[in-house]
């Protein structure tokens, strides 16, 4: 199922500039920790997060759900634990095994007409 349309706001400007370049930006702290893109405070040291870093774009499926809708085909969504540590709520695309436990995945980007580029993950080849 294609991703939906999302528009940027002031908090997501840098992130969507990143996805437009094919980069998955996450938060990076001076203490060395990484945090999810929407995080404002470092989970490790409590500092305010201001810097961004490009994630490698690889991770592991932490949990998943196949969402059913009577009018649309099922869509597989997941929480992916990036290799840097942070979690991403995301959609899984492409050919997937039945059991997604600990599946290794890699980011890709889909950009519907009129919306920002959205990160999705597929099985790492």
């Amino acid at each position: 199922m294609p991703v939906g349309i999302v528009r940027r706001d002031a908090a997501t400007t840098e992130f969507f500039d990143g996805t437009a370049r094919g980069e998955l930006l996450i938060r990076s702290c001076a203490c060395g920790a990484f945090a999810a893109p929407q995080a404002r405070t470092c989970p490790a040291c409590g500092c305010e997060l201001t810097a961004w870093a490009a994630a490698a774009g690889t991770g592991t499926v932490e949990t998943w759900s196949i969402v059913h809708n009577r009018k649309l085909p099922p869509v597989t969504v997941a929480i992916v634990r990036l290799d840097e540590g942070p979690w991403m709520q995301t959609q899984l695309v492409g050919d997937l095994p039945d059991d997604l436990r600990d599946l290794r995945v890699r980011v890709a980007f889909e950009q519907p007409q009129g919306g920002e580029a959205v990160p999705v993950f597929g099985a790492a080849g």
Binding site: M1, V6, R8, T63, V67, Q89, Q91
Partner: peptide
Amino acid sequence: TTGWRGLAAASGIYSANTMYALA
């Protein structure tokens, strides 16, 4: 459809059903 919550919704995660299913 905007910002961080919009990103989750665009990815297909927009209802409590889905969030609790992940949990």
